[in-house]
């Protein structure tokens, strides 16, 4: 397996632990299409969601990061509309 030397950690705080868990449970089922090129790990600690990307290159992680943030914004918008 190639070395995944390009690492990016995104930390997103929420108002409640429940919201952080909802975000994790919504994002994490998204399959990784090329697991030999990138991995994405989700975790929560209290109200904070942490996402760690490990990829083969800047190009690979850029696509994954922007995609996850885009999905995350949609999740936050749903909470904003229905759960706030």
């Amino acid at each position: 397996m190639a070395s995944l030397d390009y690492i990016f950690q995104l930390d997103v705080p929420f108002i409640t632990t429940r919201q952080a868990t909802i975000a994790l449970n919504t994002l994490s089922p998204d399959p990784i299409l090329k697991p030999n090129e990138i991995t994405v790990e989700y975790s929560t600690k209290d109200t904070q969601l942490s996402i760690v990307f490990k990829g083969l290159s800047d190009r690979v992680i850029r696509v994954a990061i922007s995609n996850v943030i885009e999905n995350l914004k949609t999740i936050v918008e749903c909470m904003e509309e229905f759960d706030n």
Binding site: V12, D58, R62, I69, L72, N84
Partner: peptide, 22 residues
């Protein structure tokens, strides 16, 4: 709202990361 501001901040962060990685 607090969540509305979070969404806007996420957009700013996304732009920063996209520009940097590009």
């Amino acid at each position: 709202s607090t969540l509305g501001e979070l969404r806007a901040r996420l957009t700013t962060l996304q732009d920063q990361v996209n520009v940097f990685l590009t």
